[in-house]
């Protein structure tokens, strides 16, 4: 069953078209990796899915709720605000540079949205946040502020913050790109654990070994189009397209 399906998405910034007719779907419980060179539109795609950017045209449907549909004049028409807000509540996004709230403690970073947005009681939100922190191995850090944590710890808090709203899909935009190699491993381990728990995830990554070993499907993007998609072993080890091959040749030794 598709949790999210996107069809014929077009997105431009001024005169440059960044997404050129992109179609893909995300199935429940699957891990979808998105790989591709810098500037190919991976972040823009995630940002369109999470409503941080608006598409020019195309359809995106979450479950059976339409997010945007191409109207008569070929322009994308978004659903009314309350519907978008309802959809948004099922999405989590983890950023490359964490984007934790610096003025809030680790615990409050995680409980703020459940309390203010989902209307949970403080006790409920805090006990859930503590459980998440313990999953992330950060039980001793709940009173710390983000600036007192390592990059890897901050990213784990960011994942806990996204998980606190019990999202249906978790999106990751290069979650390890701002981290040292040693810290990259600890984040990938967390994502691996989420994958084992059948969390639906879309991960933009430059970690080819991770994409190959953890994802159920891989999308290779270049210059705003999906060049190739399919089984991770097939796409990464035996790519069909020349462009995929050229891109992957830079990741020798995976």
């Amino acid at each position: 069953m598709n949790v999210l399906s996107a069809n014929h998405i077009v997105k431009s910034f001024g005169k440059t078209t960044v997404l050129k007719n992109i179609s893909f779907e995300v199935k429940r419980g699957e891990v979808l990796s998105v790989i591709g060179p810098s500037g190919s539109g991976k972040s823009t795609l995630l940002r369109c899915c999470t409503l941080l950017e608006r598409v020019d045209s195309g359809n995106i449907v979450y479950g059976d709720l339409p997010m945007v549909q191409t109207g008569e004049h070929g322009k994308g028409i978004y659903s009314p605000g309350p519907v978008l807000q309802q959809i948004r509540r099922h999405f989590g996004l983890v950023f490359q540079n964490f984007n934790l709230f610096p003025h809030m403690s680790v615990l409050r970073n995680i409980t703020e949205a459940p309390i203010r947005v989902a209307g949970q009681s403080r006790e409920e939100a805090e006990s859930r946040a503590r459980a998440l922190l313990s999953d992330m191995g950060l039980s001793d850090k709940e009173r710390a502020y983000p600036c007192e944590l390592s990059g890897g710890q901050q990213q784990r808090v960011a994942i806990a913050r996204a998980m606190a709203l019990q999202p249906d899909i978790l999106f990751f935009d290069e979650p390890t790109s701002a981290l040292d190699p040693e810290l990259t491993g600890e984040i990938l381990k967390v994502i691996r654990k989420l994958a084992e728990a059948r969390m639906t995830m879309v991960v933009v990554t430059h970690e080819m070994a991770f994409a190959r070993d953890v994802s159920d499907r891989v999308i290779f993007m270049d210059s705003g189009v999906i060049v190739e998609q399919g089984d991770p072993k097939q796409v990464i080890e035996h790519p069909k397209s020349e462009r995929t091959r050229t891109f992957l040749s830079r990741f020798n030794g995976i």
């Binding site: 999470t50 409503l51 941080l52 807000q85 948004r88 509540r89 999405f91 989590g92 996004l93 950023f95 984007n99 934790l100 709230f101 703020e112 949205a113 203010r116 947005v117 989902a118 913050r161 996204a162 709203l165």
Partner: peptide, 8 residues
């Protein structure tokens, strides 16, 4: 952006 995705 983080706040917006969290639904604030």
């Amino acid at each position: 952006e983080a706040a917006s995705v969290l639904g604030f």
